[in-house]
Design a protein around this nucleic acid. Structure first.
Ligand code: NAD
Ligand code: NAD
Lengths: 205, 205
DNA sequence: TTGTGCTTGTGTTCACATTCACAAAGTCTT
DNA sequence: AAGACTTTGTGAATGTGAACACAAGCACAA
């Protein structure tokens, strides 16, 4: 039993992939899946999958594999996705609107509860059931209930928004702009710049 | 001189980050930047940056740092972003439309030349200057000129679209759906599922 | 109950990536 | 022209993660 070993960061990054694959399998009414079976949905080899899962406990049944439903529950618990994660979105432009309307975040436990913008013509309008608020009121978000934020504003304003979010108690930021964000060490920033994601692809051709 | 060593994949992933930082610095009219200076824009330490760059040659000036403009050119050349990379987009929904209108891809040399959808009401309409084509005509893309594709359709159809793209000669795919794509080894897929990117954040809180 | 065939869990080995430390090479001042 | 200072480039050391091989455990059949 290796539960008390330090879990590699790379393992944590892969856990949501396993969750995604398992959710898909559940939808297909698959009850059990072996590490080999799973490997066909995540581009990782079976020992890697087993080792990753084993950092958190022995969830498998030897000779049979992993039971899908309980494993989903376990991973959700491990990643703290079993409790609703209230999330705020800043920037209700094209990308922000697409995200606000996207139902997929729910599946991972993320619930977008507030949307902010600074454009007069946007403030007050609704996206789905959520009314867009003035970004000047960002400091009003309740420090203890919202820990996660998504930034989808122009890159020039991203830093000041990040500063405001940190001050309001947000601890994790998904930054969709091309700006580099300087934040205190305790705050985690995940930057996804779609143009940059493409950047490494041509090298390998 | 270590130019003929194998370049770590991790290094390749970081190169677009350097490029992004350098483009920002150029915009600020910065002419020279040291590895320490750069480190303030990419969350990596100076030796890492120097080592990464040194895999491709000695671009720096001892005592001074790196000249911004030439280094941009070098990285573009290394990543093959100095030639226009024709790109097709499949799926002109909310996310697809946002991407099609987003000017940031140009900066990295990506030029979206074709957009496809399967919805009758969308086909024929224009996004910017590009007319949306019927996805049934995907096989018409010229194998030799388009190597990169972006998939922004519902996840259920992603695999069949990937198959069609591969058949048409595409070698790199940016997959924005939550579907796992099975493709031949020579084809590179980069999946960015925004919901999943969020998935690992709560763990560290 | 015993034997055969799977599949998990993990200690060990191996490969890769990061960090470090410093010589080499330039700049700048006096 | 010399010496102090800065910064690069990189071999070597360290650290971290991936792959492997196999013992341990379970299922199922006879
Ligand atoms: N919107 C988001 O913020 C977001 C976030 C994460 C992931 N995604 C993923 O991105 C994808 C697109 O999301 P969206 O919000 O734009 O959805 P959307 O429904 O607005 O757009 C999907 C588009 O794909 C088209 N389409 C459907 N089948 C097609 C086919 N066979 N060939 C070509 N086109 C086809 C539809 O006509 C539609 O225009 C989805 O897979 C979604 O899971 C979206
Ligand atoms: N659209 C894409 O496909 C795409 C791709 C990659 C990256 N991005 C990045 O995502 C971000 C948003 O892109 P977009 O296409 O939605 O742009 P957009 O212009 O459509 O939307 C930006 C929104 O931010 C709002 N805004 C501006 N300043 C603000 C502030 N200080 N506080 C709150 N809101 C503010 C604007 O009113 C607007 O609604 C940009 O940084 C862009 O670089 C977009």
């Amino acid at each position: 039993m290796m539960r008390y070993h330090k879990v590699p960061e790379e393992t944590i990054k892969r856990m949501p992939q396993y969750l995604r694959a398992l959710l898909f399998l559940r939808q297909q009414s698959t009850k059990y899946i072996t590490s080999r079976g799973l490997s066909e949905y995540v581009l990782l080899n079976p020992p890697q999958i087993r080792k990753d899962l084993s950092y958190f406990g022995a969830f498998g049944l030897r000779g049979t594999g992993y039971e899908v439903e309980p494993l989903i529950k376990q991973i959700r618990r491990i990643l703290k996705l079993d409790v609703e994660q209230k999330t705020v979105l800043v920037g209700a432009g094209r990308l922000g609107s697409a995200i606000a309307r996207f139902p997929g975040f729910q599946r991972y436990g993320f619930n977008i509860t507030d949307i902010y913008d600074n454009a007069g013509k946007r403030i007050g309008k609704k996206i789905g059931k959520i009314q867009i608020k003035d970004v000047a009121k960002l400091n009003k978000i309740k420090a203890n209930s919202v820990k996660i934020a998504i930034i989808a504003t122009p890159p020039e304003t991203a830093q000041q928004i990040a500063d405001a979010l940190v001050k309001a108690g947000v601890t994790s930021i998904l930054n969709l702009t091309s700006a580099y964000l300087a934040v205190p060490k305790k705050v985690r920033v995940r930057t996804v710049d779609l143009a940059m994601e493409l950047g490494m692809l041509p090298y390998y051709t």
